[in-house]
């Protein structure tokens, strides 16, 4: 039986956001996508703390991009989900699907 822990809720949302954004996945764009899609207003600090943790686990990798005047001449840091990260996402998704099997919520909900 696998001893790997499942991804946390926020970690999953982050990885999915990075996958959705593709080559445009950097801090600000990830933050805005989360705010628009799941109505979760995350501080930029919390976002990068989790991204650092995901990177240390090998689930994402990063690279510095171009600097722009709108950013005060500062470069963007782009993120990409690794193969290991995609496997972790699939594992969490499959586990959730297994738990949902044969379950039905009340129709009124």
């Amino acid at each position: 039986m696998s001893k790997d822990k499942f991804l946390g809720e926020f970690e999953q949302f982050l990885l999915l956001a990075i996958l959705k954004l593709g080559d445009s996945a950097y801090g600000s764009s990830i933050r805005q996508l989360l705010a628009e899609t799941i109505e979760r207003d995350v501080t930029i600090g919390a976002l990068y703390t989790t991204l650092e943790r995901l990177e240390s686990k090998g689930l994402v990798e990063s690279k510095m991009g171009e600097a722009t005047p709108e950013r005060g001449g500062r470069a963007k840091k782009y993120f990409k989900v690794t193969a290991h990260g995609q496997m972790a996402l699939k594992r969490s998704k499959d586990a959730l699907a297994n738990m949902w099997q044969d379950l039905a919520l009340l129709e009124s909900i």
């Binding site: 801090g27 600000s28 805005q32 930029i44 990068y48 500062r74 963007k76």
Partner: peptide
């Protein structure tokens, strides 16, 4: 290592 990306993101937004 996070000064540039975080401050840049905040200023852009």
């Amino acid at each position: 290592k996070l000064k540039e990306p975080i401050l840049g993101d905040l200023e852009e937004e």
